[in-house]
Design a protein around this nucleic acid. Sequence first.
DNA 1: TTAGACATATTCATCTGATGAATATGATTT
DNA 2: AAATCATATTCATCAGATGAATATGTCTAA
Lengths: 240, 240
Amino acid sequence: MADIQLDSHLLNFIVEQEYQPGDRLPTIAELGDHEHLNISVSKVREQLEVARALGLVDVKSQAGTRLKEYSFAPAVHLSLFYALATDLRYFEQFSALRTHVEVAFWHEACRLLTDADKDELRGYIEAAWGKLNAPRIRIPNDEHRAFHLTIFRHLDNVFVKGLLEAYWDAYAAVELNVYAELTYHREVWEYHQRILDAICTGDFDAAQEAYIQHTRLLHYPTRIQAGAEAHLAEKLPDTV
Amino acid sequence: MADIQLDSHLLNFIVEQEYQPGDRLPTIAELGDHEHLNISVSKVREQLEVARALGLVDVKSQAGTRLKEYSFAPAVHLSLFYALATDLRYFEQFSALRTHVEVAFWHEACRLLTDADKDELRGYIEAAWGKLNAPRIRIPNDEHRAFHLTIFRHLDNVFVKGLLEAYWDAYAAVELNVYAELTYHREVWEYHQRILDAICTGDFDAAQEAYIQHTRLLHYPTRIQAGAEAHLAEKLPDTV
DNA sequence: TTAGACATATTCATCTGATGAATATGATTT
DNA sequence: AAATCATATTCATCAGATGAATATGTCTAA
């Protein structure tokens, strides 16, 4: 336990007691009259709510409060979503960050991919094509998210992975707010195929280059406009 | 206002009401029996505490609650500090992210620097040398932080700037936990001089290269060890 | 014996109300 | 006009009550 001080009495307590992920914390009532932790139940609840919002703890009735594995994503998610709620144009900035980060850690991530991972990536591409070719159009968002996150799966950097996870949450959230063309998605998956092919031949530079090119398809932010939702509905009929 | 939904009733309320930075929110009591916001005072306080922790609002007695300008830094800071409190080795991961991000946005940031900024950078270098040469050793942490943040001052990306701000908060916090050699700091400022010189001649590539080299001096994480604090005290006598 | 239904106790969820502390504001004094 | 002071507002913190959810153990029936 390092000597880093946190604002929150409760968080300091959690760190000091060296609780591990999965461990059950004392009940709220117990924390409320814990001698070291000089705060009342209402204060405990306030700080527990912060910890919950940050994804540090799971708090359920009867099951009590359990410490979760550390992840950067919830904090980023929360702050980012607040920003997006006030102004969607923040997405462009976060998107720029995401692209640069993926590029920066690209080789390190690719090197760590196993054959099983590559098969999984292939699976996402196939599933995506299946969806795009189906009579009832479904945009393969899940596969898109999974494809990219899988590439960075083994990267040993919780912060990079947290940023990327939050990015995909935001991506899904803004999806309905933007002008999206169906053709866009087909092109994306052609690039994904190129990325995977290059990864499989070990040419990570080529994969990176294909990745960079494919991000150029992302020009959502400039397309945000009033009534985008209605427009999207029009572009996405139930059947084609 | 975009159609992004947040978990927090209060945050949604703030967004819906289109409060602007600086605006004063209703008092906690008023929020407690606001008809649209169906939560009691205790719930308001819990969610206000989350908003406060994320740096979204300033809440003071009598002055009430005011909305702040959006910043990514507090959320990053909070989550990062929690991570560091559980394990200092997380600093290495965040440091890697920081370095890659600074490199990625280097040119864009340098292009936006004004002559006044460059003078300011020069001032930090001079102040740092002054401190390092003073009989009473003071490590120029403030100048170090200011030097780097000034370079990215005009970058139009709240997320990049937030990450960097949080990095420097963490840097200061881990400083006492690590084995730091005094000579290290002199070398750093020689590199800073090179960076500034290159920026002034408009050779941003050279500046970036000098930046990358200077980050190699940062090998804090591998040096983290038990009793580092005592060791540091020994290395930092009041007078030399 | 086992699976499923059920009762119970624990724990969180939420609200109310009370008291104290901090401070912005306006009133008062010099 | 400036400085001091009193007051009312607002947050800070706590205690306690009630309700809802659910893990757990118990009981019943196949």
